[in-house]
């Protein structure tokens, strides 16, 4: 077996061996004796446990972030008086995403999945769905491995970093990973899982990284619940048999190209976009003293 580097190869490897994505991914990791199934499953279990801990701590905290600009948004959402138009699970996902992101800004313990700024997206979707739909730990680990494989294939083309590819490469990639994990847990087949990732990714192309004051805070915290729900749309479409007319690998190519075309001012340098707004500049004066 050759090392898998594209979604196309992943699809055919699964089809040929009649295996799921996580099984194929585990075989692939173990090639050349690199990463045994045991190692990968152990890391997935450790990360999953840490994700759950971060959510638990985030749910009950209102401690402000360093900058003092955030920290109470998860609490506000949990105690909202407005009647939600989302279902119970979707609501929970948003809450978990905020809980994790706010924990990150408090220097709490989180899992960079794939990055610290996007740390709330995969866990919120995975864990809230698993809780509400009775997915056991083993199934959660399989879903996290599916997410990891999705991120790995994207990262073969471009580094998952805002400085290189903008936020499409961080929160965008996380959303594609979450979509794949969710579609896996919902019993989607290989094609549906890959399509859900492609659909999610396709819809975030061009997303800039323009953090205010250079902190992983605005817009990052709230982008997490947004991108988590974005993954639900992708999974919902894919489960209905809707496919991405542009295949997953080509979407990744487009993302890489878009990242290159994007001005450096919009790639984590805080020199443009939201970071250069009047309010952001005023905050900068107050915070970065």
């Amino acid at each position: 077996m050759e090392k898998i580097t594209t979604f196309r190869q992943l699809y055919y490897a699964c089809k040929e061996n009649k295996k799921s994505i996580y099984e194929t991914a585990l075989d692939n990791e173990a090639l050349n004796g690199e990463n045994s199934e045991y190692t990968v499953r152990l890391q997935a279990k450790k990360s999953l446990d840490a994700m759950k801990e971060a959510i638990k701590s985030g749910l009950v905290s209102t401690e402000p972030s360093f900058s003092g600009i955030s920290g109470d948004e998860c609490y506000k959402l949990q105690t909202s008086k407005a009647e939600s138009i989302l279902g119970k699970t979707a609501q929970k996902i948003m809450i978990y995403a905020l809980a994790t992101s706010e924990q990150n800004l408090r220097m709490g313990r989180i899992v960079a999945c794939p990055t610290a700024g996007s740390c709330g997206i995969v866990p919120s979707v995975l864990i809230a769905y698993a809780e509400d739909y009775g997915i056991k730990e083993d199934g959660q680990i399989n879903a996290l491995i599916t997410a990891g494989e999705t991120g790995r294939i994207i990262s073969n083309k471009m580094p998952l970093s805002g400085a290189v590819g903008g936020c499409q490469a961080e929160c965008g990639a996380a959303s594609a990973m979450a979509a794949a994990a969710l579609t896996q847990m919902r019993g989607g087949d290989v094609k549906q899982i890959i399509n859900s990732a492609a659909l999610a990714l396709k819809n975030v192309l061009g997303l800039t990284c323009d953090p205010v004051c250079g902190l992983v805070e605005i817009p990052c915290i709230k982008r997490n619940p947004f991108m988590a729900l974005h993954a639900l749309t992708a999974s919902e479409l894919a489960m209905a048999g809707i496919i991405s007319k542009i295949p997953a690998d080509e979407v990744v190519d487009a993302m890489e190209q878009t990242g290159k075309l994007m001005s450096p001012l919009l790639k984590e340098s805080s020199q443009g976009g939201l970071a250069k707004t009047k309010t952001a500049m005023a905050l900068e004066k107050n915070i970065l003293k």
Binding site: V40, Q43, M107, A112, T115, G151, R152
Partner: peptide, 19 residues
């Protein structure tokens, strides 16, 4: 470019907020 592993993508477990 170095091939990453799944374990790189779903880790590290770290104190936030920035890698």
């Amino acid at each position: 470019m170095r091939q990453s592993s799944i374990t790189d993508i779903i880790s590290p477990i770290m104190a936030g907020p920035s890698s």
